[in-house]
Amino acid sequence: MLVSDAHRFLFVHVQKTGGVTIDGLLRPQLADARSVDGLTRHARLDQILSAEPDLGDYSIAGIVRNPWARLLSWWSMVERFRELAEQGAPKAQGFLSGKGFLAVVAREYADFEAFVLRGTLERPRLRTPQLAYLSTPTRRADFIGRQETFDADVATLVARLGLPPVAQVPRDNASAPRDHRDAFTPKMRDRVAEVFADDIEAFGYTF
């Protein structure tokens, strides 16, 4: 996440939605940019407000993504780290030899089908709706952009903060584009629809 007290602004970083790009874009321009002590960068809004209740009065923003495309992007990151590790890249080897989430996923799920069908059952992080990151029973993000309209929504976010317009939005930590519809069997497709029903209803996503 990213907090600016001067701008009374909180950005909630949902995994695989472009949050690394937004952080890299905004943090250098917000002199007081900070995180919330004790929380990971992917903390949910309820966790953030539990740690710092006053942030509920700030302008809150986040980005969401088509759930099927998001899971494919997540798996593509795992594959990328595997390939780099096999090529001898020290950073990737370090990640995959550890006890972190990425290492566990890479070891336990041999392919994308297992990642979707078993992973969403066994790993709470993989089945948490994006809406759960961006809302609580009493508060919801004021601005929810979409990865599908990323450039336009980043421009809107920058304008809301009163920052200079961005000539070209970079792509940090991005996987190579793939059509998610080619990667899912009917059973996998239906599993995602079940797990992320809240996102599909809230944001109107379709396969």
Rank of each mutant, 00 (worst) to 15 (best):
R181E: 05
G100Y: 02
F184D: 02
E79C: 05
A103V: 06
G204V: 12
R178I: 06
P186H: 06
V64S: 05
A197F: 14
W75I: 08
D151W: 04
R65T: 07
P164L: 12
G56N: 00
T185Y: 01
D37W: 03
G38E: 03
Y109Q: 06
E52G: 02
Y133R: 03
E83Q: 11
T128N: 08
R146V: 03
P124S: 01
L134G: 11
A174N: 13
P177L: 09
R189P: 00
D142G: 06
G62D: 05
L10C: 09
V166I: 13
E194F: 10
A155Q: 14
F95W: 13
A6P: 10
H7N: 12
A33S: 09
V12Q: 01
H180M: 08
G100P: 09
A159F: 00
P170Q: 13
V64M: 06
Y109E: 09
A132I: 14
R123G: 00
P53C: 01
R118E: 12
E201A: 15
P129I: 15
K99A: 14
K187Q: 10
R178H: 10
V158P: 15
L2W: 11
Q15L: 11
T156M: 02
L45F: 07
T185M: 04
D198I: 12
L49W: 01
H7Y: 11
F112P: 00
